[in-house]
C-alpha cells in the first residue's frame, strides 16, 4: 500500500476509498466525512500538545483518504484521552472521540487491540469489574460501615459470549484468528 521514502516521508500510491464509509457505519463515526480539516480539534487537544504522534485532524484525514492499515495498526488511535473538548468545539459535529472509538473498535476486530485495553477487558470479564472485590476488600468495607459487594458478576462474561468479544480477544495481534 505504501512505501517509505528517505527521511520518513510516506508516499501513498494505493488508498482504500471504502474505509471512510466503513468508519461512518460504526456507531459514533457517522459524521466523519463532514470534516473540513479546520484543526479546531488538534488546537485544543492536550495530548497533541504533548505528543506529536497524536493529531486528531490528521488521523481523520488519513481515514478520509483511505489509509486503512496505517490507521488501524497505529498506536496513535489509542491515545485519545476522551476529554471531549474537541467534541464540544467541532464546527462540523464530527464527534472526534466517538470516531476514535469507532477506529479502535475496527482495530480490535482486525486484531490490533492495545495490550492495556486487552488487559482491562479481560479483568472485567473475570471479575465483572476492573478491580477484584476479594474478602479483604469486603472486610475493609464492613469495617467502614459500608455494604458488602458480591465477588464477581457472571452475567458480564455471558454478555461477552453473546457479543462475540471473547472470540475477538483471542485473536492474534495484527492477524486474523
Amino acid at each position: 500500500m505504501e512505501s517509505v521514502r528517505k527521511k520518513d516521508v510516506p508516499v501513498v500510491t494505493v488508498l482504500d476509498p471504502k474505509f471512510k464509509y466503513e468508519v461512518a457505519r460504526e456507531p459514533g463515526g457517522e459524521n466523519i466525512k463532514y470534516c473540513f480539516q479546520c484543526g479546531t480539534c488538534t488546537s485544543g487537544c492536550k495530548v497533541a500538545e504533548l505528543d506529536s504522534k497524536y493529531n486528531p485532524r490528521k488521523i481523520i484525514k488519513m481515514v478520509i483518504l483511505g489509509m486503512r492499515e496505517r490507521v488501524l495498526s497505529g498506536d496513535f488511535i489509542w491515545l485519545c484521552a476522551t476529554c471531549y473538548t474537541c467534541h464540544e468545539r467541532c464546527p462540523q459535529d464530527v464527534r472526534i472521540p466517538e470516531v476514535m472509538n469507532a477506529l479502535k473498535n475496527i482495530a480490535v476486530r482486525e486484531g490490533y487491540i492495545h495490550p492495556a485495553f486487552r488487559a482491562q477487558a479481560e479483568l472485567i470479564a473475570g471479575h465483572g469489574r476492573l478491580y477484584e472485590i476479594d474478602e479483604l476488600a469486603n472486610e475493609k468495607r464492613t469495617d467502614w460501615g459500608l455494604t458488602e459487594i458480591p465477588q464477581g458478576c457472571p452475567e458480564v462474561a455471558e454478555i461477552y459470549g453473546i457479543t462475540g468479544l471473547f472470540d475477538l480477544l483471542s485473536r492474534e495481534v495484527g492477524g486474523k484468528t
Binding site: 460504526e26 456507531p27 459514533g28 489509542w78 476514535m100 472509538n101 469507532a102 479502535k104 473498535n105 480490535v108 487491540i113 485495553f117 486487552r118 482491562q120 477487558a121 472485567i124 476492573l130 454478555i159 461477552y160 457479543t163 468479544l165 475477538l168
Partner: peptide, 10 residues
C-alpha cells in the same frame, strides 16, 4: 466505559 473503545456493543 472501559469496553467502549474495544467493543461498542458489549
Amino acid at each position: 466505559y472501559p469496553i467502549k473503545s474495544v467493543h461498542h456493543e458489549t
